[in-house]
Computed example of a mutant assay.
Amino acid sequence: MTEAEIRALASTAAREAVKEVFSLMRVDPADIDSVVGFTDDLRYLRRQREAAEKISFKAVAAIFTTAVTGAGALVWLGLQDFFTR
């Protein structure tokens, strides 16, 4: 086989692989609206994932802040009780 034949075979195999992957995801690569819709869906999912990550970080920070504040309040009340007796 020549290099040109190998390149042509590889190109054909790559095209077929892409078609198969797109068909598994129910996207028609020949239909531009289908591809654009799929791309929009991926962008939306990325924004959702990033928003979920931000929310989970804020939730952990809120829980940590609540625990630290509660511990501080317990120490403060304990010290007040100790010195008022």
Rank of each mutant, 00 (worst) to 15 (best):
V36A: 08
A14L: 13
L24R: 14
A59L: 12
A71R: 05
T84G: 01
P29F: 01
R47E: 13
I6W: 07
R49L: 14
F38N: 03
G70M: 05
A8P: 00
K54F: 06
S11C: 07
A59C: 07
A17N: 08
M1I: 07
E50C: 00
A52S: 09
I55L: 13
G78Q: 00
K54Y: 06
I63R: 15
L42F: 09
T66S: 13
A61T: 15
G78R: 00
L9R: 14
A13K: 08
A8H: 07
V68M: 06
F22K: 05
F38C: 04
A59E: 13
S23K: 10
A71K: 05
R15I: 03
K54W: 04
Q48K: 11
K58P: 01
F57V: 12
E53V: 06
S23N: 09
R49V: 10
V35W: 02
L45Q: 14
A59N: 08
F57P: 01
V75M: 05
A14W: 07
S34E: 03
A17W: 05
T69V: 11
T66F: 15
S23A: 14
T66L: 15
M25N: 12
A13Y: 05
S56G: 04
T12F: 12
S23L: 03
K19P: 02
A67P: 00
T39V: 11
K19Y: 06
A8N: 07
D33A: 11
S34L: 03
D28T: 02
L79A: 10
R7C: 03
E20P: 01
Y44P: 00
F64I: 13
S11F: 07
A30F: 09
Y44H: 15
L9Q: 14
L79D: 06
D31R: 03
S56Q: 10
R15F: 06
R85V: 02
V68A: 06
V60T: 15
F82M: 08
P29W: 02
E20T: 13
R26W: 03
F82L: 11
T66K: 15
I55G: 01
F57C: 10
E20G: 05
A13G: 03
S56A: 14
V60Y: 06
F57W: 13
A8E: 09
R26V: 09
E53A: 10
A67Y: 06
F57N: 14
T12E: 15
D81K: 14
